[in-house]
Design a protein around this nucleic acid. Sequence first.
DNA 1: CTCTTGTCATTCGAATTTGTACTAAACCAT
DNA 2: ATGGTTTAGTACAAATTCGAATGACAAGAG
Lengths: 175, 175
Amino acid sequence: MNKPYNTPVSDTKWLNESEMAAWMAYVAATHLLERRVEDQLKADSGLTHAQYEILAKLSQQPGGQLRMTELANRLIVSKSGLTYQIGQLERRGLVTRAACPSDERGVLAVLTEEGMRCLERTAPGHVAVVRAFLIDRLTPEEVETMRQIMTKAAAAMKAAPAGPLRAHRPGKSPG
Amino acid sequence: MNKPYNTPVSDTKWLNESEMAAWMAYVAATHLLERRVEDQLKADSGLTHAQYEILAKLSQQPGGQLRMTELANRLIVSKSGLTYQIGQLERRGLVTRAACPSDERGVLAVLTEEGMRCLERTAPGHVAVVRAFLIDRLTPEEVETMRQIMTKAAAAMKAAPAGPLRAHRPGKSPG
DNA sequence: CTCTTGTCATTCGAATTTGTACTAAACCAT
DNA sequence: ATGGTTTAGTACAAATTCGAATGACAAGAG
């Protein structure tokens, strides 16, 4: 207690020019890219990006199946949002729901044959967009740096609990 | 016409390991970051990220004002979506609508005094999140590379017309 | 075994986003 | 001037997202 009045209420460390430019370009690029991806998928296959990500994630799993909650966590989507989209995909025959053998409560989202075919049919166009607007614009070094950046950021956010921030101290590994 | 049957229908150039890792990490990081930003803004000021971006963009303009369509284009949001959000912000007194002097049809979105104060109050926490999970995790070189990457990608997408893709040929400058 | 607590998936309501349709105004070539 | 075409902003319906509440099952302590 007894905090001095002259303690600055806001000691914000603002972004410098490079950081600000990086952040603003990131935000813009993200929105633009999302829109391009969405348009391509819609036009080519009637899938939304969210739905494509579901099929893609399932296709990477042995048996093409995954529990609902696990899938939601990996896709970084709410459980209720996933329930809705799995419903849509099921309606189109691209995914089926199956009972989980080990847990009576559990539900497995399972990629169907047709879902796999749809994914294989759609993937080339999707990859083309990702290449055309991002990957092919970069040098291999830039791609590698981007991988590092995004991997670090994602790891930080997966690790940190929700709620107010704790400061990040760069440097030594945890030990 | 008369296309040989042996022409491969799909000659997709898939992503190599580094490219795939970069893209997947980007997608994950993007979703995670959006969620963190959204949570912080909601908790700190009751703003959504979309609303914060509107206030921020307006605050950068002389007079804190911008035409609706121009604002929508810069934020990369649909016009109808912007109409809705400006309505929300107006309801909270953070933005006002004004007639455009030069065009009878036009509407100016204008940042109010209170809107400016709200932004100033909210910005520190927002910047803190961007720092904590992204900027502060990177070296200055990585920040600079990210700026380059995202700037290039954004420029490519702003330039390219909507619709099917045209191939990107890297190399010489246009001339 | 039984009770309490926690987890899994879904349902429901509220909020947001987009595309299309629509009205008014500007622009432009007769 | 004047009729035809664009453009600006909004209204509306459809789709999607999330959080909170719900019901069924699991897990652990006693």
